[in-house]
Design a protein around this nucleic acid. Structure first.
Length: 274
DNA sequence: GGTGCCCTGTGG
DNA sequence: CCACAGGGCACC
């Protein structure tokens, strides 16, 4: 479900509601969502901790506690977070509840149960979470045409697969890879090794600009987010190709085409994208 | 690299 | 009924 802009929204909505709170108790309703360590240790170590901050890295969320421990969360396809009063009914697919000192609860809800939590000790490596392998953020000044060409310029993969590789750039998913390639005028199936310097430049320019635009458009007041139960905060009105297969291209009017790349669907304009 | 899998729900 | 869904990983 969420890619970088949506995860950023979750962070912006949730962070002010939980920072400074301490965790009174932990309720794990489905142990599977706790990837590391075991569920008992996870709950035991969280209890009594104070939340000092919350950050995003790629599609990961990282909760910081006093004493230096941190909890890492990946929402995967359908995971989301809500802060609700303890008396609110617990909805279906709720897998983890943190009882906070102000009487509210931080809840993790995930229909498909793909989302995962990790709890790391102070200074413990995040190799286990995958955060350590992430490539630069789209907003990073490290993300240049020279970087992209050097990192994947000889790869025999398609450019779409490379953009989905979190070790190349962090945070791009199936929606925004299609949007980026449309804006940059490059077909998703194009082989990385055949892209021109000009095309690497266009990618390096498009990735941060489009992601920043989507983050800005995705902002939502916490009340609206909570009222819609974390469901209606997506960039759908701004997507030019994703979800629009068969419809006219917004640039040239030619019907947008859809194909499969590495098991993921991909929408593009056969006319505007070379 | 491709494929299957982890899950549940929805839409054709 | 089957195909598909915004993610990521293990396995040939």
């Amino acid at each position: 479900m969420p890619e970088l802009p949506e995860v950023e929204t979750v962070k912006q909505v949730i962070r002010p509601q939980i920072t400074g709170q301490s965790i009174r108790s932990v309720r794990i309703l489905h142990e599977k969502v706790i990837a590391y360590p075991g569920p008992d240790e996870f709950a035991e170590r969280l209890r009594g901790k104070t939340i000092t901050g919350m950050r995003r890295r790629g599609k990961f969320l990282c909760f910081h506690f006093d004493g230096g421990e941190r909890m890492v969360l990946h929402l995967r396809m359908t995971g989301h977070l809500l802060v609700l009063p303890a008396e609110e009914p617990v909805e279906k697919h709720t897998h983890l509840i943190l009882n906070l000192s102000d009487g509210k609860q931080l809840r993790f809800i995930d229909l498909r149960r793909f989302g995962r939590f990790w709890l790391l000790r102070k200074g413990e490596s995040d190799a286990v979470t995958g955060v350590r392998k992430l490539g630069p953020e789209p907003s990073s000044k490290k993300l240049t045409a020279v970087y992209l060409k050097g990192r994947i310029g000889t790869s025999r993969r398609s450019i779409k697969e490379a953009l989905l590789d979190q070790t190349v750039v962090a945070g791009i998913g199936n929606i925004y890879s299609d949007e980026i390639l449309f804006t940059a005028g490059i077909r998703p199936k194009r082989n990385c090794a055949e892209l021109s310097d000009d095309e690497w430049e266009r990618l390096a320019e498009t990735i941060p600009r489009l992601m920043a635009f989507m983050i800005r458009k995705n902002r939502i007041p916490a009340e609206d987010y909570t009222r819609s139960r974390g469901r209606e905060y997506r960039n759908t009105p701004y997507l030019k190709v994703y979800g629009h297969a068969g419809e006219p291209c917004p640039n040239c009017g030619a019907p947008l085409e859809k194909n499969k790349i590495g098991g993921r669907s991909s929408v593009f304009c056969p006319n505007c994208q070379k």
